[in-house]
């Protein structure tokens, strides 16, 4: 009897020990200022990026974010160039502002090319992809750096965020969420049926440019977390997951925001324990969620069709 009791007590104690250890690690994790900043940015990006991603997926421009991201790389290099020309102590202090400017200009250019219809959208995107990367590598060399300096921007460097970066992200995310959610009816109308939006008198051109500029800001703010090469993933993959499971625009957007925030925080937390790239971990997690949802969706779908057949 006594032996049996002690045998039961031991695993319970062990479990308690693991829980304690978990709480302690969580406390140290949350106590680290670096991790705090990284978490704030991850949550902001996770929530804001899918908002613009929903509009881009709706108008079948899922790769636009990628195109803008590549241009942002040229912007990063331009920021470096400006920084070293001005003799600033740290070369990359102007990198993110440079990316914001280049991304916004590039996004408006894409929109103009698309509207004119002279070049098909995919060719225009291809020009931006390669022009952006080549421009970035070229300019970083001119600025006295090497393409190794760009790696942090290509794959994300959430571990090196500064207090200034956090404030910049908070500002950009506030703009994206404010406009993206506040003007949702008009942006939905535009992205769902542009011809009808124009026939209704909606300022389609201004709204198109607004979408492009907001997408550019989203790319700039997400760049630090997942990097230029993966920036589109954090905008698009949560939406791809959500649209498998919903049938309204509103819930798709809300669910995508939730998924975005969840994978961003979870991915970041994993990299606190394991020496992995945060950006890549977040994206792989998101794609894992997509695979799960894709496997579950046919079951949900069958139920939905059955209901539709009854009604």
């Amino acid at each position: 009897m006594g032996e049996l009791a002690s045998g039961e007590v031991e695993p319970a104690l062990k479990q308690e020990g693991i829980v304690m250890e978990f709480w302690q690690t969580l406390q140290t994790m949350l106590g680290s200022p670096l991790m705090q900043r990284a978490l704030v940015i991850a949550v902001l990006v996770g929530v804001a990026a899918p908002v613009m991603g929903t509009y881009l997926v709706q108008r079948r421009l899922a790769l636009l974010g990628d195109g803008i991201g590549h241009i942002a790389l040229t912007g990063v290099a331009m920021g470096w160039l400006a920084g070293s020309a001005a003799g600033l102590a740290t070369h990359d202090v102007l990198a993110v502002p440079g990316a914001v400017v280049a991304a916004v200009v590039g996004a408006i250019l894409i929109e103009v090319v698309r509207e004119r219809g002279r070049t098909s959208a995919d060719v225009a995107l291809a020009l931006l992809f390669y022009g952006g990367i080549a421009g970035g590598v070229l300019l970083i060399g001119v600025a006295g750096g090497t393409s190794a300096n760009l790696t942090g921007y290509l794959f994300g460097s959430i571990a090196t965020v500064t207090g200034l970066d956090v404030w910049l992200s908070v500002g950009l995310a506030a703009v994206i969420l404010g406009v993206g959610l506040g003007l949702r009816p008009a942006l939905f109308a535009l992205c769902h049926d542009e011809e009808f939006a124009r026939a209704s008198g909606l300022p389609a051109r201004a709204l198109n440019i607004l979408v492009a500029v907001l997408a550019a800001l989203t790319v700039s703010v997400s760049m630090r977390v997942v990097g230029v090469l993966l920036v589109s993933a954090i905008m698009i993959v949560p939406v791809a997951v959500a649209q498998l499971l919903t049938h309204s625009f509103r819930t798709t957007m809300a669910l995508a925001m939730g998924i975005g925030a969840a994978v961003s925080v979870a991915g970041l937390a994993i990299t606190y324990y394991q020496p992995l790239s945060p950006g890549a971990t977040i994206v792989v997690l998101a794609i894992g969620v997509y695979a799960l949802a894709a496997a579950a969706a046919p079951l949900l779908g069958r139920r939905r069709t059955a209901r539709a057949a009854v009604s």
Partner: peptide
């Protein structure tokens, strides 16, 4: 319209007719 990669309900599409 061609752009409908994201699901939208009939009520949502109809409500967009209120804008001008």
């Amino acid at each position: 319209g061609a752009g409908s990669g994201v699901p939208a309900t009939a009520a949502e599409v109809v409500a967009s007719g209120l804008l001008d």
